[in-house]
């Protein structure tokens, strides 16, 4: 007799639990509330990333095409995967002394793991993170970038 009742109570509880679950899905079906799915390619124009978003490493340039990098190479030493190569150059300054500047600041985006050590350890805050995140390219060589813009120079007073 006991098993007889158990058989039917099991069926009852089973159906009840299924209905409870269906009530949850039903509620979300008719009133989804907050919709978190982003319509990505369509919302590209007004897509705002967070301010600290690590899209890629960039060198910060001001309006006069000047940057703060003096080519010390601390970012290169701090990088765990060798994504950064600093090629320095020597120029003769106004006072006649030779000065170390960068020729090329090469950044291999394909090797970068976005650990943020280069940006954190830069003594003159020359590097930063950019917001760009659509990095897909057809050729791997396009992932190697030169961060200092052509014709740029160092801001005076940054050593």
């Amino acid at each position: 007799m006991n098993s007889f009742f158990k058989y039917f109570s099991d069926i009852f509880h089973g159906v009840k639990s299924l209905l409870i679950g269906m009530s949850v899905t039903g509620r979300y079906f008719f009133s989804p509330g907050q919709i978190v799915t982003q319509q990505y390619p369509e919302n590209r124009k007004n897509l705002q990333m967070f301010e600290r978003f690590k899209g890629e490493v960039i060198m910060l340039h001001d309006g006069n095409n000047q940057h703060r990098c003096n080519g010390c190479g601390i970012c290169e030493n701090n990088c765990p995967n060798g994504s950064i190569e600093v090629i320095p150059a020597k120029i003769t300054g106004e006072d006649g002394k030779s000065k170390r500047v960068i020729d090329k600041h090469i950044y291999h985006l394909g090797m970068c793991t976005f650990c943020g050590l280069c940006v954190k350890n830069c003594p003159s805050n020359a590097l930063g993170f950019g917001q760009e995140f659509e990095h897909a390219v057809f050729d791997r060589s396009k992932l190697t970038k030169v961060l200092n813009q052509p014709g740029s120079s160092i801001i005076k007073g940054v050593e």
Binding site: V36, F50, E51, R52, F53, K54, T113, F114, C115, G116, F129
Partner: peptide, 18 residues
């Protein structure tokens, strides 16, 4: 997604924050 957004705002990454 809410936690990932919190992380992205503070750390800059959603998944591998370092």
């Amino acid at each position: 997604e809410m936690i990932l957004d919190i992380w992205e705002e503070t750390t800059g990454s959603r998944f591998l924050q370092s």
